Every structure is written in C-alpha cells, then in structure tokens.
Computed example of a mutant assay.
Amino acid sequence: MATLTRATRIRNPALFICDLQEKFRNVIYEFPKVITTTTKILRATQSLNTPIYLTTQNRARLGDTVSELTPYLSPSQPSQNSRLKADIDKTLFSMITPEMDKLLPNPSRQGEQALDAILVGIETHICVTQTTLDLLSRGHRVYVIVDGVSSANAEERAVAVQRLRDAGATVTTSEGVLFEMLGDAGHAAFKQVSGVVKETKEETRGALEALARI
C-alpha cells in the first residue's frame, strides 16, 4: 500500500467525475447545481488539457452520463487528443475498479507521479467517499469539490465531507481549485479560465449557498 500523501499545492491535476447519471436527476439533493459546477470545471480546464476519468454506476439501469457534460468529453477539434482517459461502467461503489486502477499512475513506482485528483459527483457518503479513500491509499492527493458533490439526503454530505477531510483529502471549491491550477495571472490559459469563472458567477454563488455549508 502506498504512503498516504496529504494534499498540498496542485501539481498533476486530473478530474474524476463519479456517476453523474440521468436517473439521479430527481433523487439527489441539488443535483442541477452539481451539474453546473462540473460543467464549469470541464469548460475551464479545456485549455489546460486536464485528463478526465469518468464512471457510471450500473449504466443499463441508471442511465448514461447526463447530457450536459457530453459536449466537453470529446475533443473540441479533430486534431486534438481526447482528455477522456476512462469511461467505465461499474458495480463497485468506488471509481477505482481494477480496470481504472490499471489506467492510473502508481506513485510507488519510480518515475510515476501521484495525481491531484479533483473529485466531483455522487453520492458523497458512498461512491465519493470510497473513491477518495482508495485514491489516498494509493498515494494520490484528493481535492473534494464541495460545490460539486451531493447525496440523496443532504445531511449525509456534511458527515461524509468531514470524514474525508479527516482522512487526508482537501475540501475546496471549484473556483479555488481552478485558480490554484493556474497559479499565475500570466498563465496562457488565464483569460479562458477566468472568463468561464466570470460567466458562471451566479451559478457558482447558488451552488455554494446550497452545498458549501457543511
């Protein structure tokens, strides 16, 4: 088992999207706000070429990934490589299935760098929790996006988020993580990222009001 690495500054980001599927629309607390946050992150990280790891839970029964995300899961131009590194259907609650595990770097091996896993999705106390714990146990750093995770019962979120913070994950916001990825207003992607942040200002405020009180 790899040594647990506490999250510090983001160095090797990857976006993990956990089980944001059609059948959950009317089940999950503030589900539309989770989708708007995830869409914002997907849009803002296009110019950063941040890799994406995505899962669904029993897709045949619970549906495909929500349609709002699909435009951002394929290259914007034919000449570009896809950012989507995994699109895995699962029955495990954790995203870290054996198939997914093979696709991730192994920090215990020389030359393989730990990921800064930026995690959004559902449900906070089940799949998000188990994914976080599995990533941490493998030596990756995890950033749980508080305005991008939810559960059917709102009360489960706070308990889970506190547990994950205690376990070594960093709990942060979508805007905080985006600007940390940039690190410098002189970054080539600053204009594109800050433009998305400004454009989604009202949606972000609504998501934080609903989801950041833990």
Rank of each mutant, 00 (worst) to 15 (best):
I118T: 02
K90G: 00
D101K: 14
I96D: 05
T37Y: 00
R43A: 06
T170M: 07
T45Y: 01
V177D: 00
A152V: 12
V161H: 00
L136C: 12
T131Y: 13
S194M: 06
E203T: 02
Q46F: 08
Y53M: 10
E202T: 12
K90Q: 02
S79M: 14
G168F: 02
D64C: 15
P32C: 05
Q110W: 03
Y143T: 01
G168L: 02
I88E: 03
T50L: 09
V177F: 01
D184L: 05
R165V: 08
A160E: 08
R141S: 13
T91W: 07
L135R: 08
A114C: 09
N12V: 13
G195M: 11
G139A: 10
T8D: 10
R9N: 11
T131Q: 14
T129S: 15
L115V: 13
L92H: 10
D166Q: 10
I17C: 07
R11T: 14
E123L: 13
E155H: 13
D166T: 09
A7M: 05
T36C: 03
V128Q: 11
R213A: 07
T200K: 04
P107G: 03
Q46Y: 10
V27T: 13
L182D: 06
L48G: 01
I214E: 05
V144Y: 02
Y143P: 01
T172V: 02
V27P: 05
A154V: 10
S174T: 00
Q130R: 14
H125F: 13
K85S: 11
I122E: 04
E199G: 08
V149P: 04
R141M: 12
F93R: 06
T132G: 10
S194L: 05
R11F: 11
D89F: 03
K85H: 11
K191F: 07
R213C: 05
T124Q: 11
L48K: 02
R213E: 05
R109T: 04
P13Y: 03
V161W: 01
S174A: 01
D101M: 13
Y72H: 14
D101I: 10
E123Y: 11
R83C: 08
R141I: 09
A152F: 12
A169K: 00
T38N: 06
T173A: 01
V128T: 12
T124V: 14
S47D: 08
T173L: 03
A44T: 01
G148F: 02
I118M: 02
R213I: 05
T91G: 07
A60P: 13
Y53N: 10
E22A: 15
Y53Q: 09
P75L: 09
S150N: 11
T204L: 04
V27E: 11
L133A: 10
Q80L: 13
S79A: 15
A114P: 10
I41Q: 00
T50E: 06
T70W: 09
V193L: 03
T65R: 08
G186W: 06
M181W: 00
T65I: 12
A185I: 08
L178T: 00
K90F: 01
H125S: 14
L62Q: 15
C127K: 07
M1T: 08
Q46S: 09
I126Y: 09
K191R: 12
Q192C: 07
F93S: 07
L92F: 11
S174I: 00
E175N: 00
S79L: 14
K191H: 11
A212N: 02
